[in-house]
């Protein structure tokens, strides 16, 4: 308002004139109303589905709400849930599991394998490349429950699992217990990675294909080997999709638990493959003795959300996302 008043004075209209003040105000209100009108639906959706649940979660984590607690629900218990969480004997293990699961899957599959697939399928004849990408998309086109069940049938111990039934036999050994029993993490990460890689693959492929052919020709003429072309030209030019996939997949892996739930339920044994999001789910909805500890589950979830937020901000800072905006060019000879 101060600014507009000064302006009015500059143009010779008396600053104290109430009519001019009112018309300026009306104009401003109208402009603001239009803007909010357009943004309104989006604001409502974001509030309703992101902000409000977040707040509810936070509030919930300070209460003792659970299915066993009908007498005195919603009572404030301070940081009890949090201290219970951090003093949980399995908390370090779950934390380690989560970090291992997220970063192994991310580096070897969602980024690594995705990049390899994109580089390979863009360097072979177009049709062959298209075919292989389609094959890699199949798990994504399959309902995830069906996909997981198929893996389970493959990976179970002898005599149920296809792999353990057939392969050790060929090698002359007796029935094995590889995968689900013997090395559950390998199995969980493979199952996730084979689906996860296809997302990055598609994004990287389109980014690689949009690199001008002349640049590659120039690099070849400049003396670059295939490896140098990938390292010096292709990777830097798909930096933005790489960072995007890294950020996006970290966050989505952090909250993904449905594959582990269906494959191993966090087992075998105690918390072997249990990740944070799965713990939150179990505490809130399928806890021991039929007791759904909603508030305690919410506590796990709210801490996870905080970790995700910190990571997201970290990625944005680390990868200097704002540097992606180019400076204007200077037009002269």
């Amino acid at each position: 308002m101060t600014q507009s008043l000064e302006k009015e004075t500059d143009t010779g209209v008396p600053a104290g004139d109430p009519t001019s003040q009112r018309s300026t105000l009306a104009r401003r209100v109208r402009a603001t109303a239009t803007a909010y009108g357009f943004m309104g639906p989006a604001i409502v959706l974001v509030l309703l589905f992101f902000i409000v649940p977040g707040i509810l979660l936070l509030v919930l984590s300070f209460t003792n709400l659970s299915s066993a607690n009908f007498s005195d629900p919603w009572s404030y218990i301070g940081f009890d849930n949090f201290s219970r969480l951090f003093s949980d004997p399995f908390f370090p293990k779950i934390l380690r599991n989560t970090a291992f699961y997220v970063f192994t899957t991310l580096i070897f599959f969602n980024l690594g394998l995705a990049l390899v697939l994109a580089l390979v399928t863009t360097n072979i004849p177009r049709r062959a490349g298209f075919f292989f990408r389609l094959v890699w998309l199949l798990p994504r086109l399959t309902p995830s429950v069906v996909y997981i069940m198929m893996w389970q049938r493959i990976g179970q111990a002898d005599p149920f699992g296809i792999y353990n039934q057939i392969v050790p036999g060929f090698l002359g050994a007796s029935g094995g217990n590889l995968f689900l029993g013997g090395s559950p993490w390998t199995f969980v990460i493979l199952t996730n990675g084979f689906v996860g890689a296809s997302f990055g693959m598609i994004i990287f492929t389109s980014a690689l294909e949009s690199i001008p052919k002349d640049l590659i020709t120039a690099a070849k003429v400049d003396g670059a080997s295939l490896w140098r072309i990938i390292r010096d030209i292709k990777l830097p030019l798909i930096k933005w999709p790489l960072l995007f996939i890294a950020t996006y997949q970290t966050l989505s892996l952090l909250t993904s638990f449905e594959y582990i739930l269906l494959l191993t339920e966090g087992g075998p044994g105690l918390f072997t493959t249990e990740v944070w999001a799965l713990t939150a789910y179990k505490r809130a909805f399928s806890s021991y003795f039929g007791n759904s500890q909603w508030a305690f589950g919410a506590t796990w979830a709210i801490v996870l959300v905080s970790v995700a937020l910190v990571l997201a901000v970290g990625y944005v800072k680390l990868f200097k996302f704002n540097e992606l905006i180019e400076e204007p060019r200077i037009e002269n000879l």
Partner: peptide, 28 residues
Amino acid sequence: PKDRGIGMVFQSYALYPHMTVFGNISYP
């Protein structure tokens, strides 16, 4: 191509956008 001892200039310039002028000229 790298062993042919050639230099090439393109219509599109084909400069590496993520490198500086020095980076581009020094690349070979």
